[in-house]
Amino acid sequence: MMKLIRLIGGRTASAPVARERLQILLAHERGLRGRPDLLGVLSQPVSRDRTRSLLDNRRQRQRHPLARIQLRKSRSATKALEIARSRIGVARLLTNATWPAVVAWSSSDDCRPVRSRRTADVR
């Protein structure tokens, strides 16, 4: 019903945009303040997001609520992580890092390498 009203009124929900912008901005600012907890954000349990994805009407999230990333934790150690799609903005910030760094990503079970460090597309 809300979608129909929005369609007629020509308005789109802006809250998801606000959320995405805030997540990226705060991930950056926390790092500048000496709270580099991007890794912590990525590693948070995803169960809440699984529940949310069931409630979320957007088809994209229902189909692929999670993304899989390969994280380089140190010079030698890597770790596979399942993250919520809502945290992709944070993951994107780590594609240009030395370590911890996101070195591969996928929205399904396989995990492909990040194509280019500068233009890594994690969508």
Partner: peptide, 16 residues
């Protein structure tokens, strides 16, 4: 406004 998606939801704020 929150239910219309025009305002950050409570969950969004608490998660951030």
């Amino acid at each position: 406004r929150a239910s219309r998606g025009e305002m950050l939801s409570i969950d969004d704020i608490l998660e951030i």
